[in-house]
Measured scan of single mutants.
Amino acid sequence: MTSCHIAEEHIQKVAIFGGTHGNELTGVFLVKHWLENGAEIQRTGLEVKPFITNPRAVKKCTRYIDCDLNRIFDLENLGKKMSEDLPYEVRRAQEINHLFGPKDSEDSYDIIFDLHNTTSNMGCTLILEDSRNNFLIQMFHYIKTSLAPLPCYVYLIEHPSLKYATTRSIAKYPVGIEVGPQPQGVLRADILDQMRKMIKHALDFIHHFNEGKEFPPCAIEVYKIIEKVDYPRDENGEIAAIIHPNLQDQDWKPLHPGDPMFLTLDGKTIPLGGDCTVYPVFVNEAAYYEKKEAFAKTTKLTLNAKSIRCCLH
């Protein structure tokens, strides 16, 4: 018999989150649709729960009410004593943790798909938090293969000092899905179709896995975050240069030392320094102006996964 890495157990509980950011409308629209008619997301033997994560922000069509829901799922915020004085999103995070967690427990949901849009030209993107997770690498390989020839990129946010504390991190297997470009507060049919297909293929993978299909060893190309880059700023902290036209919409493309990065209003080009080629992502993302992030630098690498098969009882 072929030796293989056996994944822990079959997958039982899956959640699909929309509206973690209330103005990213593809996930909101799909989740609302699936709450009314969820036939397309159901798979035999699998509990799939669509869920609106930040209903107040969705109602106002804004990213958040008090603070970013997708950055506060750490033990400090989840452990705060519940009171009306807490920011709305912290209270909501505790409610979500109660419903789908608790985080880092045996009772937490197996998989959470968190649906997002970006204003950046990132196409279909899967966000991975753990480079050693054979199950998710296999799932992402399946999704990428199923979507081809449509490109699907994998963004690895594993980093020693950049801690995200994402909404989906309460699950055993957290999956971020990011599709763009799409303006905030807008629905685009092409973007919706791409996100819908990503979810379909992900659920198909889980179904095949649960039925005992063995997935042979595989490898995927990923883009691992190195650092986030702020806009150049003046002495008052105001933005002093904008994304250069040569960099705009060039997510995932190589940016070499000396290539144009920013452009000042008086026409001066600010190039990339250093001696390493990087791959920019979230270029000129609207939501990241407040976070002082013009783009993120990534490096390209390959992740390998062992063969996996479900432990059938």
Rank of each mutant, 00 (worst) to 15 (best):
T2A: 08
S3H: 15
S3C: 10
H5Q: 08
E8T: 14
E9K: 10
E9T: 14
H10D: 13
H10E: 11
H10G: 14
H10R: 14
H10W: 10
I11N: 04
Q12E: 11
Q12F: 07
Q12H: 11
K13S: 10
A15N: 02
G18E: 03
T20G: 07
H21Q: 07
L25Y: 10
T26Y: 02
G27N: 01
V28W: 12
F29T: 14
L30G: 00
V31R: 00
H33C: 09
H33Q: 09
W34E: 00
E36H: 09
E36Q: 10
E36M: 11
N37E: 10
G38H: 09
A39Q: 14
A39V: 09
A39L: 11
E40H: 02
R43P: 01
T44P: 07
G45N: 11
L46Y: 10
E47V: 11
I52G: 00
I52H: 03
I52W: 02
I52M: 10
I52E: 04
I52D: 01
N54P: 12
R56M: 07
R56S: 08
V58Q: 11
V58H: 06
K60A: 15
C61S: 12
I65M: 14
D66H: 10
D68I: 03
L69E: 09
L69S: 06
L69C: 07
N70H: 12
R71T: 08
R71N: 11
F73V: 12
D74L: 06
L75E: 10
E76G: 12
E76T: 08
N77K: 13
L78T: 12
G79N: 12
M82R: 12
S83I: 11
L86D: 13
L86S: 13
L86W: 14
R92L: 12
E95H: 08
E95F: 15
I96N: 07
I96T: 08
N97T: 13
H98Y: 07
P102F: 07
P102C: 13
D104P: 12
S105N: 11
S105L: 09
S108H: 11
I111S: 01
I111E: 01
F113A: 01
F113L: 09
L115S: 03
H116W: 01
T118F: 03
S120Y: 02
N121K: 09
G123M: 04
G123V: 02
C124V: 10
T125R: 00
L126M: 12
E129F: 08
R132V: 07
N133V: 04
N133M: 04
N133A: 07
L136E: 04
I137Q: 03
Q138D: 02
M139A: 00
M139Q: 00
H141M: 03
Y142T: 00
I143Q: 00
T145S: 15
S146P: 01
A148Q: 06
P149G: 05
L150F: 08
P151Y: 04
Y153R: 13
V154F: 05
Y155H: 14
Y155W: 10
L156A: 06
L156F: 11
L156N: 06
I157C: 08
H159S: 12
P160Q: 12
S161Y: 12
L162V: 09
A165D: 14
A165P: 13
A165N: 12
A165G: 13
S169V: 05
I170E: 03
A171P: 04
A171V: 13
Y173L: 13
I177P: 02
I177M: 11
V179N: 04
G180H: 02
G180L: 01
G180R: 02
G180D: 00
P183T: 05
Q184C: 07
V186Y: 02
L187R: 01
L187D: 00
A189S: 11
L192R: 02
K197M: 13
M198C: 15
I199S: 00
K200S: 09
H201E: 06
I206Q: 00
H207T: 11
F209T: 03
N210M: 06
N210G: 04
N210Q: 07
E211R: 07
K213H: 10
E214N: 07
E214H: 12
F215D: 00
F215T: 01
P216M: 05
P217A: 10
E221Q: 06
Y223F: 10
Y223R: 00
V229S: 04
V229K: 03
Y231H: 04
R233S: 13
E235H: 12
E235D: 07
G237A: 05
I239K: 05
I239E: 02
Q248V: 12
D249H: 03
Q250N: 14
Q250Y: 07
K253A: 13
P254S: 06
H256G: 09
G258Y: 07
G258H: 12
D259C: 06
D259R: 04
L263K: 11
T264N: 06
T264R: 08
T264H: 08
D266P: 04
D266S: 14
T269H: 08
C276A: 15
Y279R: 01
F282I: 01
F282P: 03
F282Q: 12
V283I: 13
A286F: 11
A286I: 05
Y288Q: 11
F295V: 01
F295K: 00
A296K: 07
A296N: 09
A296S: 13
T299W: 10
T299Q: 15
K300N: 04
L301E: 08
L301D: 06
T302D: 05
L303F: 04
S307P: 11
L312P: 15
H313E: 10
